[in-house]
């Protein structure tokens, strides 16, 4: 029952966003399916950045351990902050791509 509240909140704010875009801001001529596809692509780009960040961090830590006497823990790269930062990377990259395609 409590989890249903999540979906209700998400549905209400999504509908409010849709109304704002379509009625108040005049975005109605753009296909919603294309926008959702683009959002999915943007999320996917963030996943690629996340995986790349974790892999690069892990390999760097292992290299530092092997080549020097300094110890770097691998758990540093499982920090939750990597998620929003990778999301920002993906968002920026995909916005760049979209703008480049328009020009």
């Amino acid at each position: 029952m409590e989890q249903l509240l999540f979906f209700v909140c998400l549905a209400v704010t999504s509908l409010a966003g849709y109304w704002l875009g379509r009625r108040a801001l005049g975005f109605g001529h753009v296909s919603l399916a294309a926008v959702l596809g683009s959002a999915l692509e943007c999320l996917g780009a963030s996943v690629i950045f996340l995986v790349a960040n974790v892999l690069l961090g892990t390999l760097t830590a292992l290299a530092v351990r092997t080549l020097t006497s300094h110890f770097v823990g691998l758990y540093v790269f499982s920090d939750a902050i990597l998620l929003p930062l990778s999301l920002v990377q993906g968002l920026a990259f995909w916005s760049w791509r979209e703008r480049a395609r328009v020009h």
Binding site: F6, C42, L43, G44, A45
Partner: peptide, 24 residues
């Protein structure tokens, strides 16, 4: 390359949404 990137990103994006939904 761009078309491949779009397909890969869509698949990974869908997977990320499924992971979030799995938390419910």
């Amino acid at each position: 390359l761009d078309r491949t990137l779009v397909v890969v990103c869509r698949c990974l994006g869908a997977a990320a949404v499924l992971v979030c939904l799995a938390a419910l």
